[in-house]
Design a protein around this nucleic acid. Structure first.
Length: 312
DNA sequence: GTTGAGCGTT
C-alpha cells in the first residue's frame, strides 16, 4: 500500500514540503504542525476564482477538497492571526512583517504547575485538548518510584491556544494549576504581560467584585486573591494591551455605599523581588535576565522604580 | 499589612 503525499508550503513562493496523508485520505493537523509549527490549517487557490479556499478541519484532521482530492496542487499554511492590529500596522505590509510575526508567535513548551499527584499524561492531554490540538503532554515523575512530581509540560499546535491557556488558571482533577512559559524558555519568545497587580485591596473585595469591575476594560481571564488576606490581588486580562493600559492608574471600585481606591501596577515575578533587592523588574523576568545585565540607574514608571540596564 | 509556590535525567 502506498502512502499519498501532498505538497505544502509555508506561503506562496516558499519551498514546499511533502506531507504524508492517513489511510482515510486526511492529513493530520499534527503532521502539518510537525513541519510547520504554529500552523493552524491549510488553504489553496481555487483555480477558477483565484481566491483562497480553506481546507476543512475536523477533530484534528484536514480533509481533502471534495472536488478532486489533494491532487497535485499546492497547499499553503494558515497561521493564527493576531486578533488585534493597530491602524498604522496596516500601512506596513507583507512579507518582512509576516515573517517577523511568525517567529514571535511560535509556540513553545509550557510548564503546568500544581498538578495533583494522581494526574496522568492522558488526563493532562485530555484537559488541554479543549483549548486546541495538543502536540505534547508530559507529567514529570520520579524515575525510581514513578510518582508524579506535581508538574508537567504541554505544547500546543496553535499560538492562539497557547495564548488562551496562558491567560488563565486551570482546574485540573480538582486543583488549581498555573500554566507558564518555563524559565528555560524565557527570552526566546515574546511575552507581553497580561497580569496586573492590584494594590490597596480591602478584605471585603471579592474575586467577583474585581472581575466585574475590571471586566468593563476587557475580558478578564483570572483573578487571584491570596489567602489569608494580604491587601493585594492579581487580575489577568486576555489582551495584554488592556493590562498595560491600566498600569499606573488608581481605580475606585464601588462597594455598597462606599468606594475602594485600588492601585493597578505591573505584576512583577516574586523571584525577582526576592533575589536582587527591593524592586523587581518585570522585563528581566519576561524577556530573560541574560539580556538585561547590571542595573545602572533608576526610572519611575507605572508608579514605581525600575532598573535601567547598562548595556543592551 | 501594595508582589503569587512549585521549573524539564532525553
Amino acid at each position: 500500500m502506498s502512502i499519498e503525499y501532498l505538497q505544502v508550503a509555508e506561503d506562496e513562493g516558499e519551498e514546499p514540503i511533502e506531507l504524508p496523508t492517513e489511510d482515510d485520505g486526511t492529513l493530520l493537523l499534527s503532521t502539518l504542525s510537525a513541519q510547520f509549527p504554529g500552523s493552524s490549517g491549510l488553504k489553496y487557490r481555487n483555480p477558477e476564482s483565484k481566491s483562497f479556499r480553506g481546507v476543512r478541519l475536523s477533530e484534528g484532521r484536514l480533509h481533502p477538497p471534495p472536488d478532486g482530492g489533494w491532487g497535485s496542487q499546492m497547499f499553503y499554511c494558515v497561521f493564527p492571526k493576531e486578533n488585534k492590529r493597530k491602524s498604522d500596522d496596516n500601512l506596513e505590509n507583507s512579507t518582512a512583517k509576516t515573517k517577523r510575526m511568525e517567529t514571535k508567535l511560535r509556540c513553545t513548551d509550557l510548564i503546568v504547575l500544581g498538578l495533583p499527584w494522581k494526574t496522568t499524561e492522558q488526563n493532562l492531554r485530555e484537559y488541554f485538548e479543549t483549548f486546541g490540538e495538543v502536540l505534547m503532554a508530559q507529567v514529570k515523575k520520579d524515575p525510581k518510584t514513578g510518582q508524579s512530581k506535581g508538574f508537567g509540560f504541554i505544547r500546543f499546535a496553535s499560538y492562539e491556544s497557547q495564548m488562551r491557556v496562558l491567560a488563565q488558571r486551570h482546574m485540573i482533577d480538582g486543583r488549581w494549576c498555573d500554566v507558564k512559559v518555563p524559565n528555560s524558555k524565557e527570552g526566546l519568545i515574546q511575552q507581553v504581560p497580561c497580569k496586573v497587580f492590584i494594590g490597596r485591596c480591602t478584605e471585603d473585595l471579592t474575586a467577583d467584585d474585581l472581575r466585574e469591575y475590571f471586566g468593563k476594560f476587557g475580558e478578564v481571564t483570572d483573578v487571584f486573591i491570596p489567602k489569608p488576606f494580604r491587601a493585594f490581588s492579581f487580575v489577568t486580562f486576555l489582551d495584554p494591551e488592556v493590562a498595560q493600559s491600566l498600569c499606573g492608574e488608581d481605580h475606585i471600585i464601588r462597594k455598597k455605599n462606599r468606594g475602594v481606591s485600588v492601585h493597578v501596577s505591573n505584576a512583577a515575578p516574586k523571584s525577582e523581588t526576592r533575589g536582587g533587592g527591593a524592586y523587581g523588574n518585570p522585563r528581566s523576568a519576561r524577556w530573560g535576565r541574560s539580556s538585561w545585565p547590571k542595573p545602572r540607574r533608576w526610572i519611575r514608571w507605572s508608579g514605581r522604580l525600575w532598573h535601567i540596564p547598562t548595556t543592551v
